[in-house]
């Protein structure tokens, strides 16, 4: 499984990355988690804003910090 957290690096982006890491860890899953901070790369995903979360190529959340339960629902 491949998870990407899109965001240039503000507090909400960092919080999103933390939530994703915790969700993956708590489920004991194997997943590659990448943080994408390059604005041009982020633009390739067609998102209206950040932070955003992408799971296996599909954008799951845009412009908000998801809950841990939401993330678990996307990856389990």
């Amino acid at each position: 499984m491949e998870i990407k957290v899109l965001g240039p690096g503000c507090a909400k982006c960092q919080q999103t990355e933390k939530v994703v890491n915790e969700a993956v860890s708590e489920l004991g899953m194997q997943a590659a988690i990448d943080k994408i901070t390059d604005v041009l790369k982020i633009g390739e995903y067609g998102v209206f804003g950040t932070p955003a979360v992408v799971v296996d190529g599909e954008v799951k959340s845009v412009g908000k910090v998801p809950t841990k339960e939401e993330v678990k629902g996307w990856i389990s």
Binding site: G57, V59, S61, V62
Partner: peptide, 18 residues
Amino acid sequence: AGIGAHLSGFVQSAKDVP
């Protein structure tokens, strides 16, 4: 157009925008 194409970044953005 991105929404019409059902590209996930566009669709999810429109779903999540306040």
